[in-house]
Design a protein around this nucleic acid. Structure first.
Length: 784
DNA sequence: ATACCGCTCTTTTTT
DNA sequence: AGAGCGGTAT
C-alpha cells in the first residue's frame, strides 16, 4: 500500500481524548460496539478512529466505509476528517446508507438490472406512483389507502420481503401483495427506484453475487456505523453482507436515543450485533461534555424509568449549574407569551437567539408559538416545513428535466403533462393510460393511441419535450435548466400568477443550486473517465486505489463510474439524483440570528445553550397514540431524554392547563415525565396567583369563543362564556378544574352535563384516559 | 378545463 | 383550525 504522506505522530490525533474515547478509537481491528451517550463526543470518536486507522497504516482510505443516516452527519464527518487527514476525503466511502447504495447501484447498474440513469423517487413521487397503481387495478382507495399501501411496501422492503415473500392470510393481504407486485413492475418499467429499493437492491446484489460480495468484503477492512440504534432489519442485513470475515465493524449507538422505532428501527440490532459479531468488549462513553449536572441528573432519572436498556449513566464534571425550570401556564397562548418573554430576557442577557431552542412534540404545536413570536417581531426559524426540492414549482421543473433524461418516467410525465395547462384533461389522460397499460409501454410511447383533440395536444407535449432535449444538447447544466424553465412555460405561468413571485425566485434558486452542485461535485467540462475501483470479480483490485493522486474529478465525484466502462453519468442525471437524495435545507432566513423552533425529533443531534421543552402534558408528550403499548411509552420517554440532553446551560419545561388542538380546547394534566424528574434538580417558577387567577378567565374565554364549543350556551351566540358549573355533594365544580379521584388520580374536568342527580362530568385523567362519571356516585375532590 | 365547495384527517420523519 | 383532496357545478 502506498500512502504518499508522512504518517503524523498518532499522538497528536489522540491528544485530547479521555480514557474511554481513547480506548474506543484505538480498539484492535475487531467488531466493536460503542455505547455513546448524548454529548459524549461520539462523532469525534468515529472520525478520529478513521483518521487513526489510516495514519497508522492499518487501512487505506479505500478500505474504509462509514455509514450515517443523514446527509448532515455524513458531511460533518467528511469535514472533520478532511481537517485531520492530508488526503482528499471525498472519494472515500463515507455517506448515508442511501447515498452509498446509490453509488453502488450506479456502478453495478447492469447487474442490478437497472437503466444506467435510473432516477430516485422521493416519498411524494412514491405516493403518486402507488396511487396510480391502485387506480390502474381498479381498487377502492377507501379500502386500500395509498398512504398505508406505501407504508406497507416500504415496510416490506425494509424487512427484506419481495411481493412473493409477503405473508398472504386473507383477501386484503393478497391484494396488498398484488399491489406491491404491480408497483414494482411499474417502477421497473419506468426505470425508477424508491428509497427502500436502493437499500434492498444493493443488499440482494451483495447476497446473490458471490464475486461482488467477496470483492467488497475484501475491500472494506473497516466498516463504521453511526447511530446504530436507528438501523432497521434491512440495514443490519446490509451491513452483514458488506462485512466479511476480515472486516471489523465499529458500531456506535445509544439505545436511550432510539426514537425511530415507529418507522422500523430495531434497537434490538445492538444486542444482536453484540452477540452475532462476538463483540468482546462494549465501551461506554458516559462522560458528557455538553450539559450541567442538574440537566444530566434529570435525563438520567427520567430514562431510568425505562426497563429495556443496555444501561448507561451520563456524568459531568461541570458542576450542577442552574436548576431546571418548570412552568405551568393556563393556556397554550399564555405558555407562548411567557416563553417569548423569557427568551427575550435571555437574549438581553447575552444569549444569541440561535442558541435558544423551542422544542415541541408535534408540529401542530408550532403555530401558537410562531404567531406569538411573529407578533412580537422576534426573529425565529422553524425547522421541518417543506424543503427546497419538495416545493411544487421545483418538483415541476425537475419533472421536465427528468423527462429529458428518461421520457418513460410516467410519474414525471403525469406531473407536468398538463402543467401549465395545455388542454389535456382527465379524459384524455385516462385514454392514454389505458392505451399504455394495454401495450405495457410508457405514456410517452402511447401518445399515438389517443385520437382527437386530446391526442393532438398530447403529441404537442411530446414534441415539446423532444424539442427541449434537442435544444439543450451540449449545454451546461445551468443553461439546460434555464432553457427548460422558459420553454416549458413554467416561467410564464408563474409570472402571471399573483403569488408567483416567490415561486419564480425559487426557480432561480434551482439554477443556483445546480451551479453550486456542478462546482462542488467537480462536474466541470473535463470530468474524466477514471480508473475502475468498483469492478468486481475479473479485475484484480489493489486496495489502495483511491488515494492521493487520483484525478480530482474522481475524488470529488459523488457518482460512481460504471463498473465496466468507467463512464460517469451526465451532470443532469447526477443533479437529479442529488435532488432526490438530498432534499435540501428547509429554506431559512439564513444568516439572521433567530430563535430555533423544531420538533424533538428534529432536534436530535443538535445542542443549544438554552432549551425550552413545551407542551409537557399527558396525551401530547407522551403522545396519546403511543400510550396503547408499553414500547410506545418507552419510546416517548427516550424522546424526552433526547429533548433534555439538547440543553447545555439552561433548561425550561412547560405545560399548560388548556390547549387548542384540532379546533377544540383540550384540558390536559401535566405529563408523567415531569414527575419522573428529581425534585432536587427542579425549580417551579409558575407564579402562584396565576394558577387560577385573573389570567384564567380571559384565556378561557379566548379559547372557547373561537372553538367549536361543547358548552350548550355556545350555540346561543353568547360571546362571553363563563365556565359551566355543577355541584356534587355540596362541592362546586367547573370545567377546567382539576379534581382528584380515588381510583383514577388527578384529572381535569372537560365537560359538565345535566343537573341534580343526573349531573355527570367528562374528565380527562391523562394516563387513565377520558372518563364519564356520574357526580352523584363518583367521589371527586377539587385540587388546586 | 377550471373553480369552488365540503369532506376528512391531523405524531414523530430521513432518505 | 387548517390543509389537502376529491367531487361536482359552471
Amino acid at each position: 500500500m502506498s500512502l504518499d504522506f508522512a504518517p503524523a505522530a498518532p499522538t497528536s490525533l489522540l491528544n485530547n481524548l479521555n480514557p474511554e474515547q481513547l480506548a474506543a478509537v484505538t480498539l484492535p481491528s475487531r467488531p466493536a460496539l460503542i455505547l455513546a451517550g448524548a454529548g459524549s463526543g461520539k462523532t469525534r470518536v468515529l472520525t478520529t478512529r478513521i483518521a487513526w486507522l489510516i495514519q497508522t497504516g492499518q487501512v487505506s482510505p479505500a478500505g474504509v466505509m462509514a455509514v450515517t443516516f443523514t446527509n448532515k452527519a455524513a458531511k460533518e464527518m467528511l469535514t472533520r476528517l478532511g481537517a485531520m487527514l492530508p488526503i482528499p476525503v471525498r472519494g472515500m466511502w463515507i455517506g448515508t446508507f442511501h447515498g452509498l447504495c446509490n453509488r453502488f447501484l450506479r456502478a453495478h447498474w447492469k447487474l442490478a438490472n437497472l437503466p444506467q440513469s435510473f432516477q430516485i423517487l422521493d416519498s411524494q413521487d412514491q405516493l403518486s406512483a402507488v396511487r396510480r397503481v391502485i387506480k390502474a387495478m381498479n381498487l377502492d382507495e377507501e379500502r386500500f389507502v395509498p398512504k398505508q399501501v406505501t407504508w406497507f411496501i416500504a415496510g416490506s422492503k425494509e424487512e427484506g420481503l419481495r411481493p412473493r415473500d409477503v405473508q398472504v392470510r386473507d383477501e386484503q393481504s393478497r391484494t396488498l401483495a398484488a399491489i406491491y407486485q404491480a408497483y414494482e413492475d411499474q417502477c421497473q418499467r419506468e426505470g425508477v427506484v424508491d428509497f427502500a429499493e436502493l437499500m434492498l437492491r444493493t443488499y440482494e446484489l451483495m447476497r446473490d453475487q458471490p464475486a461482488l460480495r467477496e470483492h467488497y468484503q475484501r475491500r472494506f477492512r473497516h466498516v463504521l456505523v453511526d447511530e446504530f440504534q436507528d438501523t432497521n432489519r434491512l440495514q443490519y442485513a446490509w451491513l452483514k453482507a458488506f462485512a466479511g470475515p476480515e472486516t471489523s465493524v465499529f458500531a456506535v449507538g445509544d439505545d436511550d436515543q432510539s426514537i425511530y422505532a415507529f418507522r422500523g428501527a430495531q434497537v434490538g440490532n445492538m444486542s444482536d450485533f453484540e452477540r452475532e459479531f462476538h463483540v468482546e468488549q462494549v465501551i461506554k462513553l458516559e462522560r458528557n461534555y455538553r450539559s450541567f449536572g442538574n440537566i444530566l441528573d434529570s435525563a438520567n432519572a427520567l430514562i431510568s424509568h425505562n426497563t429495556r436498556r443496555l444501561g448507561k449513566n451520563l456524568r459531568t464534571e461541570a458542576g450542577p449549574g442552574e436548576p431546571v425550570r418548570v412552568y405551568e401556564s393556563t393556556s397554550d397562548y399564555a405558555e407562548a407569551q411567557w416563553l417569548l418573554e423569557e427568551a427575550q430576557q435571555l437574549h438581553r442577557d447575552g444569549t444569541p437567539r440561535s442558541e435558544i431552542a423551542i422544542l415541541y412534540r408535534s408540529n401542530a404545536q408550532s403555530r401558537v408559538l410562531e404567531s406569538a413570536l411573529f407578533n412580537a417581531g422576534i426573529p425565529y426559524r422553524v425547522y421541518g416545513g417543506l424543503r427546497f426540492f419538495e416545493r411544487a414549482e421545483i418538483k415541476h421543473a425537475l419533472a421536465y428535466l427528468r423527462l429529458l433524461e428518461n421520457p418513460n418516467d410516467d410519474t414525471s410525465y403525469l406531473r407536468v403533462v398538463n402543467f401549465p395547462t395545455r388542454g389535456i384533461g382527465a379524459r384524455t389522460l385516462e385514454q392514454l393510460q389505458d392505451a399504455a397499460r394495454a401495450t405495457g409501454r410508457s405514456l410517452y410511447q402511447s401518445v399515438g393511441a389517443v385520437t382527437g383533440k386530446g391526442g393532438a395536444n398530447l403529441a404537442a407535449f411530446n414534441t415539446l419535450v423532444d424539442a427541449m432535449r434537442d435544444n439543450t444538447r451540449g449545454l451546461t447544466l445551468r443553461e439546460i435548466i434555464e432553457h427548460v424553465v422558459q420553454a416549458s412555460g413554467l416561467a410564464d405561468f408563474y409570472r402571471n400568477e399573483k403569488e408567483g413571485r416567490e415561486r419564480l425566485e425559487n426557480l432561480d434558486e434551482l439554477v443556483n443550486a445546480a451551479e453550486a452542485f456542478v462546482t462542488q461535485e467537480g462536474f466541470g467540462k473535463d470530468a474524466v473517465a477514471l480508473p475502475v475501483d468498483e469492478h468486481a470479480g475479473a479485475v484484480v483490485v489493489s486496495p489502495g486505489t483511491i488515494a492521493e493522486g487520483d484525478p480530482p474529478a474522481v475524488a470529488r465525484t459523488e457518482q460512481a463510474p460504471d463498473a465496466e466502462t468507467g463512464e460517469i453519468m451526465s451532470p443532469l442525471a447526477a443533479f437529479l439524483t442529488h435532488a432526490a437524495l438530498e432534499a435540501g435545507d428547509n429554506q431559512a432566513q439564513a444568516g439572521q440570528d433567530a430563535i430555533q423552533l423544531m420538533t424533538v425529533h428534529a432536534a436530535k443531534g443538535l445542542e443549544f445553550d438554552c432549551v425550552f421543552i413545551t407542551g409537557l402534558e399527558e396525551g401530547l408528550f407522551p403522545h396519546e397514540n403511543s400510550l396503547s403499548d408499553y414500547d410506545g411509552l418507552e419510546e416517548e420517554r427516550r424522546l424526552m431524554y433526547v429533548a433534555i440532553t439538547r440543553a447545555r446551560r439552561r433548561l425550561y419545561l412547560s405545560h399548560s392547563q388548556t390547549r387548542m388542538l384540532h379546533g377544540q380546547t383540550r384540558y390536559n394534566i401535566k405529563s408523567r415525565f415531569l414527575e419522573e424528574l428529581p425534585e432536587a434538580a427542579l425549580k417551579w417558577i409558575t407564579p402562584k396567583a396565576q394558577a387560577f387567577g385573573s389570567g384564567y378567565a380571559r384565556d378561557y374565554r379566548a379559547a372557547w369563543s373561537s372553538g367549536s364549543g361543547r358548552g350548550s350556551a355556545a350555540g346561543a351566540g353568547e360571546k362571553t362564556l363563563a365556565p359551566k358549573v355543577a355541584t356534587s355533594e355540596g362541592v362546586a365544580l367547573r370545567t377546567g378544574q382539576s379534581v382528584f379521584h380515588t381510583k383514577f388520580g388527578e384529572g381535569v374536568i372537560v365537560t359538565l352535563e345535566g343537573s341534580g342527580a343526573d349531573a355527570r362530568a367528562q374528565i380527562n385523567f391523562g394516563r387513565h384516559g377520558m372518563k364519564w362519571l356520574a357526580l352523584s356516585v363518583a367521589k371527586l375532590t377539587p385540587v388546586d
